[in-house]
Design a protein around this nucleic acid. Structure first.
Lengths: 98, 98
DNA sequence: AAAAACTACAACTAAATAGGAGTTTTTATT
DNA sequence: AATAAAAACTCCTATTTAGTTGTAGTTTTT
């Protein structure tokens, strides 16, 4: 019936991921991490002047979307950009933007 | 500050567009139009068994996102796929899907 | 026990959807 | 020319859904 199958779930997934990234706080986190190798949660929520729980929530979203990675060292968890994730993101934008 | 500028508006725009496409009724409309050259609004809302106003609304969304085009002939408005729009859409998905 | 981060929950906000009613545009009829 | 009918569009409202924030409580490590 359909020449080329359009997978609604795939589209929904990508749309959701892009929209998840497109949030003021999360864009700020990404920007900060482009200049610094890695940051722990305390540093991030202090710099952004938001609640700890809020920072944790946003960080988790970015990590689940494959934008960030984290490693635990002692009591702290350090977040950093996942290699190539930004390049992929920009490539995605270039392909999709008409 | 940011090595590569991330345009939040661009991301939001693409996310919104993809999400607009990812709707059951609109996917059905796209699928139907992949098999038929063009269809008028009455045919579409009858086939999908939805309200006329609803069909009009969904068609307008798809047109505004550059997926469909329309032409008026007499009392009817005929909708069809905008050339290359589906190819672009699928290319977009391939680039963004990880 | 204390520090750091995560998780869960509830309240609030914003966006999307569907339905009904009314409006515009075009054609047909008298 | 006036009116009616068909087709599609627009507007408004109610409902639903998704996302955000904040508080409180829990887990993990020192």
């Amino acid at each position: 019936m359909i020449k080329q199958e359009i997978d609604i779930r795939k589209i929904e997934d990508i749309a959701q991921r892009l929209r998840a990234i497109a949030h003021p706080v999360r864009i700020k986190i990404i920007s900060m991490l482009e200049n610094t190798d890695e940051m722990n949660v305390t540093t991030i929520f202090n710099k952004l002047e938001i609640e700890q729980a809020s920072a944790s929530h946003h960080l988790n979203i970015l990590k689940s979307k494959g934008i960030l990675q984290s490693r635990r060292q002692g009591k702290s968890t350090y977040y950093s950009l996942k290699p190539n994730s930004i390049a992929n993101l920009l490539g995605c934008i270039n392909t999709c933007a008409k």
